[in-house]
Design a protein around this nucleic acid. Structure first.
Lengths: 127, 127
DNA sequence: TATTGACTTAGAGCTAACTCTAAGTGATAT
DNA sequence: ATATCACTTAGAGTTAGCTCTAAGTCAATA
């Protein structure tokens, strides 16, 4: 697959994909004799994985650590597990923050509704 | 309350609080005769609100819009509601992304566990 | 044959959200 | 009296994560 095809498939710009490769996030992208990227299944899997993790807000530096551990082979399995567990914890915390904020917004939206419908005579501007 | 006290109370640096005020995120922070910030309850409520929204990842530009609508008074109640509804939708989407990623990590962590415990003879490196 | 279009590179530029620096004021402690 | 400390300002610097530019190669089409 060319970079244009991969770009379309995963909805990432070609620039972003090249950037990810340059910094080492996508190990060993194959090339044609002319030096043009020819993404195979493994490269695509990496891109899909990176995209998913980035969408959840995981930092590139952390992902780089994971990729580098991966490159070192079986001996790093435990370290990789530890890394993913840590990131899982961070995502849980993010989830909690977002949940709390959604609940707060729900409450505010209810108040706004009551104000709009005129159910609140004691209308005081709540932040 | 001085900026130092507010900084401690909400775990934000004084720099961040000054920055928020400068760009207009905290309307009307009172000052002493000497020109020193003297945060009242309303200012604190704004800071707490901004902090909560920022923690969930809401953009400063959006929060500025909200604050500006708020300043214009009752006539903007519907617009404010619309704005908060939009942001709620964005948070739901983020939540979904994070949930999907946590589930994916859970699956990977199980695989890693099986590998570590030697339950997998067919060990092939999964990304 | 000339040009169009997809690819290549190195490296500069951009945006959001802070974070820091320098220079200054004023109240309190030694 | 002098030094320390918390505050003030304007504006420069930083970081993450892209995004764009310029200059070039190569294959296919008018």
């Amino acid at each position: 697959m060319t970079i244009a095809e991969v770009s379309k498939k995963y909805d990432l710009t070609a620039d972003t994909i090249r950037y990810y490769e340059k910094i080492g996030l996508i190990p060993t992208v194959p090339r044609t004799e002319k030096g043009i990227r020819n993404f195979d299944e493994e490269s695509c899997n990496w891109i899909e994985f990176i995209k998913c993790m980035r969408n959840a807000g995981m930092e590139i530096e952390i992902l780089l650590e994971y990729v580098n551990l991966f490159k070192q082979g079986k001996t790093t399995v435990k370290a990789r597990k530890r890394l993913l567990e840590e990131q899982r914890e961070k995502l849980i915390e993010k989830q909690n923050n977002i949940n709390a904020t959604i609940e707060r917004l729900d409450y505010k939206l209810e108040l706004y509704d009551e104000i709009i419908l005129g159910k609140r005579k004691d209308f005081t501007e709540t932040i």
